[in-house]
Simulated scan of single mutants.
Amino acid sequence: MDDAPHPLADRFSRIRAIALDRDGTINVDVKYPHRLEDLQIIDGFAEFMAWAAETKLPVSVITNQSGIARGYYDVEAAHRFNAAINASIAPLGLRIEHFEMCPHLPDAGCTCRKPATGMLENLSARYGIAPNEWVVFGDQYSDIECASRFGALSVGLGAKFAAPGLAPISPDLVIGALGDFPAIYRQAIANSSRI
């Protein structure tokens, strides 16, 4: 095992809350998922949520849902889909604390659609947690840019972030899926405590 301090250990030690993108991060991103039969949870989500509960970090979701403005589904359908995500982990005693959704079109000029920071600002006010105490996970560049603008730690999910210099913006950390993060966090914190 590598005992060298993780370069993000100091940032990890400051984390007090988690914000997750939804589609492509928690569930498979079929086009505009909103029907309950669309819900396919990505492997590792339950393990990630168990780690968050063990670490006492509240988990919220920040999700762009322009399908609402496009007329593909309504707000109630989005709420039902979110509730189904929580129902998938409820038997384990786990839950996402809060869902923030932007229902607007990309060109609406709103302050909530990622990469704008409105949803994170709402969460920060809700929990009284400063920007640099959040970690944001997502599979899109807009998630990473949102975190960067806000001042949060960013974690990119998937191979698209793995080639430095090719992406328009680079996350602070790249992992394959949510389930990969707890082991990285635990090792980083353990190693930093030995210094």
Rank of each mutant, 00 (worst) to 15 (best):
M1Q: 10
D3L: 14
A4I: 11
H6Q: 03
L8A: 07
A9T: 04
D10Y: 03
R11P: 03
F12N: 05
S13V: 03
S13N: 09
A17N: 05
A19N: 10
A19F: 10
L20G: 09
D21Q: 00
R22V: 06
R22I: 08
R22D: 06
G24I: 07
G24F: 02
I26G: 07
V30C: 13
H34N: 08
H34R: 03
L36V: 09
E37M: 07
E37W: 07
D38M: 07
I41N: 12
I42G: 11
D43T: 11
G44H: 11
F45R: 09
F45G: 09
M49N: 02
M49R: 01
A50M: 12
A50I: 08
A52E: 06
A53S: 15
E54G: 13
E54V: 04
T55K: 15
T55I: 04
T55H: 14
K56M: 09
L57W: 14
P58T: 11
S60N: 12
I62Y: 04
T63A: 15
N64L: 03
G67L: 03
A69W: 01
A69Q: 04
R70E: 03
D74F: 01
A77G: 06
A78L: 14
H79M: 13
R80P: 03
R80N: 13
F81T: 01
I85S: 10
A87P: 04
S88K: 10
I89A: 13
L92H: 11
G93S: 12
G93L: 12
L94M: 06
L94R: 02
I96Y: 14
E97S: 13
F99P: 10
M101F: 15
L105C: 00
P106L: 01
P106I: 00
D107E: 06
A108K: 00
C110M: 04
T111M: 00
C112T: 13
C112P: 05
P115Q: 06
T117W: 00
M119G: 12
L120N: 11
L120R: 10
E121M: 10
S124M: 07
S124R: 09
S124F: 01
R126Q: 14
G128L: 11
G128I: 12
I129E: 11
A130P: 05
A130L: 13
E133P: 06
W134H: 08
V135W: 06
V136G: 02
F137P: 11
F137H: 10
F137K: 12
D143V: 07
I144M: 14
E145Y: 01
E145P: 03
C146L: 12
S148V: 09
R149D: 05
F150I: 09
G151F: 10
G151H: 10
L157T: 10
L157N: 10
G158F: 01
A159T: 08
A159W: 02
K160Y: 00
A163S: 12
A163K: 14
A163E: 13
P164D: 06
P164V: 09
L166Y: 00
P168R: 14
I169P: 07
P171F: 01
G176T: 13
G176V: 07
A177C: 13
L178W: 06
L178Y: 06
G179C: 08
G179L: 10
A183Q: 11
A183H: 02
I184T: 12
I184A: 09
Y185M: 09
A188I: 00
A190D: 14
S193P: 01
R194T: 13
R194H: 13
I195M: 11
